[in-house]
Design a protein around this nucleic acid. Structure first.
Length: 281
DNA sequence: ACAGGATCCTGGGGGC
DNA sequence: TGCCCCCAGGATCCTG
């Protein structure tokens, strides 16, 4: 990580953004949309602006790493932050940062909702009707929320694949919301090797993975909550929140449990850090 | 159907 | 100091 203080948004970061936005947006009307010239992962369609103008925000929610802004009249604004996306409510008179792609006006308010995304891996899409929203998640085969799962789900899911454990954790079809950072942290907490074949895991190891995924994500949510209140930087960053990670970005440093130097390998095309002593197959 | 690879994109870091 | 190259990674599309 060294000097890098951007955290790629995973479930805990997205949950934090949602909690941060909720009081600012709920009950407010979106009045307009300004669209930048550069396309996002999914192109914002010109007809969506007029369609959502004047709609009141009913609720702000989350599904996996997707942010859901439910509007009056069964419209659903679905936003993914990709790797570098930021969604902030800011004063209208504050200068608009480079790479701001969408600006939503808010009624009776001197603030506006801004979507900024340097790498443009993120997206914003408008769905009309609950069926269209359900169909989107159904077709993308988004897996269940990690907090809704029990060990039986993990046993079945892991037994039914030839892949290694970390690849399954990263797979949004298997479980929604886990990304590269929390996958590594959860496997360190569970003391299981990231390259372990998923189908060969013992019952006790599956239970450890199940508990570790939940505990790690919950700790992430708790820490982000603290960081956003205490250490939020002017550009909307999360300060020094990454100091809590035990393995992510720490290849070569001593394991906090046993002192063995942490090792790095590539799994599913993702940089993976683990303790070769604590984490076994 | 499933698994693995390529693709998109930019700022930052390493190497020379 | 400067330039080039490469790397990071989430979702999605493509191939075997």
């Amino acid at each position: 990580m060294r000097g890098e203080d951007k955290i790629v948004p995973e479930l805990p970061e997205v949950e934090t953004v949602v909690r941060d936005l909720r009081p600012h947006l709920t009950g407010r009307r979106l009045t307009s949309v300004q669209v930048g010239s550069q396309p996002l992962r999914r192109r914002w369609l010109a007809e969506w602006g007029p369609r959502l103008a004047g709609r009141r925000v009913r609720e702000v929610g989350r599904r996996g790493k997707w942010i859901l802004i439910h509007l009056q009249g069964e419209l659903h604004l679905v936003i993914h932050l990709g790797m570098t996306g930021q969604l902030c409510v800011m004063p209208v008179n504050e200068a608009t940062a480079a790479h701001t792609h969408l600006v939503f006006g808010l009624d009776r308010c001197t603030k506006e909702l801004r979507y900024r995304d340097i790498r443009r891996f993120g997206s914003a899409t408008l769905f009309e009707g609950q069926e269209a929203l359900d169909l989107f998640f159904q077709e993308s085969r988004l897996g269940p929320e990690p907090f809704d799962l029990d060990p039986d789900y993990w046993r079945e899911r892991l037994a039914g694949t030839a892949r290694c454990l970390k690849a399954v954790l990263l797979d949004q079809h298997a479980v929604a919301g886990v990304g590269n950072i929390y996958a590594d942290e959860a496997l360190f907490a569970a003391r299981v090797h990231p390259a372990a074949p998923a189908r060969r895991l013992s019952r006790t190891r599956v239970a450890r993975v199940h508990n570790a995924v939940r505990a790690t994500l919950q700790a992430g949510i708790d820490a982000q909550g603290a960081s956003i209140r205490d250490f939020r930087t002017p550009d909307g960053g999360y300060g020094s929140a990454q100091e809590r990670f035990a393995v992510y970005g720490r290849a070569g440093e001593p394991c906090e449990r046993c002192g063995t130097p942490l090792r790095r390998m590539v799994i599913a095309q993702r940089g993976t850090v683990y303790c070769p002593h604590c984490q076994r197959f």
